[in-house]
Amino acid sequence: MNQTVISSLLPVILLIALGLVVGKRGWIRDTSVKDLANLVFLVLSPALLFHAMSTVKVEQLSLWPVASYFLGAGVIFGGTLLVMGFDRTSVVTAIANTYSNTAMIGIPLVGLAYGPAGMVTLLTLVSLHSLVLLTLATVAVELALAREQAASGQGTRRHIVAVVGRAVRNAVIHPVPIPIIVGLLWAQTGWQMPEVIDKPIQWLGQAFGPLALVMVGVTLAHTRVGTHFKGALLLAVVKNLLHPVLVFGIGRLLGLSGLPLTVMVVAAALPMGANVFLFSQRYKAAEDLITAAVAVSTGIGIATLSLIMLWMG
């Protein structure tokens, strides 16, 4: 196996495995997972994202690689609705097929494999990831619910403008895009961050990767796949393999190559993100299947990521 793939994936595997052991032995109980997740997402993640973008100039950013990711996701999202029909379950399945774990797994992995330049490309995607995909899914599922209610004679739901507005607000006012935007704005000022402030932010950001990966393992230890394995495996194959292949093809059509294309393909190959599970819970659609799919997608993600990274060279 390529040395870069080994050196990038092995630390990820070891930390997730450590989390599995910790979870299985009960050192971190199921009731404590939410508190640790809050620490990761509300404290460590913003510090890392701000620090990573605080030295990036706007001219370094490119939206073409990000466009290839979202176009690939759009093809799979629309295809899922065509195959399954338009209802809550199909929308939830569609977001499961397209929403990557760009934070907890993506940031540590891309940082190890592709360095600061790769991180700039990934964080450009991260800043828009939830905004685009969760807004799309929210609008679609609200339309599906309105259709269900109209068919059952229960009246109409909120106006679609209100639905879109709420979805956009929730996606923007979030601990992921805000520190990216603030860090980018800070970089444009040219000001130097005082070391007494910069150093603690840097330390917090450095703690994100290891703790986030351990948390992935702990979450897997408390997840039961049960009778949904076959359905979960199908969703995982679509997410982990079909999505990156589509992104690669679309990226080539857009004239992309080199590191930007590689990072987007690897981002598309990442396992399903935790927001997929939360989305299914919120709209009470296919909760058990999606829970199993997130676990299976993460479980086979090491193998599928290895294949994709080797393929991209």
Rank of each mutant, 00 (worst) to 15 (best):
A113K: 03
T102R: 11
H129T: 09
V132F: 11
Y114A: 15
I107R: 08
L109M: 05
T124L: 12
G118D: 15
V126W: 01
S130T: 15
V126H: 00
V91K: 01
L122R: 07
T98K: 00
V132K: 06
T121H: 13
M84L: 12
T98E: 02
T102L: 15
V92K: 07
G115T: 12
A94M: 00
S100Q: 09
S100T: 11
A113E: 05
V132M: 13
F86T: 02
S90V: 00
L128Q: 05
L112Q: 14
G115I: 07
M119I: 13
L123K: 10
L131N: 00
T124M: 14
I95E: 00
N101T: 10
V126Y: 01
L125A: 13
A103V: 08
L128G: 08
T89C: 11
S130I: 14
V120H: 01
V91I: 06
N101L: 12
V110A: 09
S100F: 02
A103M: 08
V83N: 02
Y114C: 15
D87H: 07
L133W: 04
P108L: 02
T124N: 08
G118N: 14
V110F: 09
V91L: 01
V132S: 07
F86H: 03
L112G: 12
A113N: 05
I107C: 03
L82K: 13
G85D: 05
T102M: 15
